[in-house]
Amino acid sequence: MDTTVYVPVDGTRAVRARDLTKTYGSGEAAVHALAGVDVDFAAGEFTAIMGPSGSGKSTLMHLLAGLDTATSGQAFVGTTDVTALNDSALTKLRRDRVGFVFQQFNLLPMFTAEQNITLPVELAGGTVDRQWFGTLVETLGLTERLTHRPAEMSGGQQQRVAIARALIAQPDVVFADEPTGNLDSRSGAEVLSFLRRSVRELGRTIIMVTHDPAAAAYADRVVLLADGRIAGDISDPTPESALAGLDALRTLEPNVSTGTTPVVPGAGAR
């Protein structure tokens, strides 16, 4: 299967999941992290996946990005079925068409901000699009920081470098896993604005996993997940509507018996 050339057959859907299932263990001890998920993510949209701890939101993201193997079902990036790819094809997919932003930033400590940002392009053996690089650096406010190493930057700055790194190869979709989890609220708000700007101004597609309603409110759409199933969908969320959606899941909790760990109210993901 060709992974290098992206043919937007369905221009509106960047990522799709079809009956996506992930089961850990077997028999009595089986835990269904994802129990048949069908969901579409539109291109050029900023989508948040929300859900309580153990709802399977991280698992869903890993499967969509081809970082983990599904038990059954399919996940598509564009028209490419990532569940059918082998490791080297997945590596190429991650290089060219998928970007990542991590909770822990995960910058390489021995490289400067600029070296960190351009690393994915270099790994792919390509040349950096200097104009795009300039746009990113300016948009993310990193012009002054390019020669600094991660240890010399604040958490917010590091995460902005990580966002630039995720966008440098102009991927079809960027997955962000709790990008504000390690940041104070001001830096977090800053990072979220940058993510929204890269969608609105740079035309990127971002799928963000979060447990924070305030963070989810920056997205265009919130997909709610509970016990490995899609449990709701909120368009143009506000902090209040996102929180209400989350609370609705919690009140449903006692009625659902899937064998997964009961969720303790108030305990979010780390």
């Binding site: 970082l67 490791d87 080297s88 590596t91 190429k92 991650r94 290089r95 060219d96 970007g99 990542f100 991590f102 822990q104 995960n106 390489l108 690393l119 994915p120 790994l123 792919a124 790194r165 995720a166 190869a169």
Partner: peptide, 16 residues
């Protein structure tokens, strides 16, 4: 470990 995993996630192939 984490760093290797990050590199793999951003496109470092196994042979690289």
């Amino acid at each position: 470990r984490r760093e290797s995993a990050t590199l793999r996630a951003i496109g470092l192939s196994k042979s690289q």
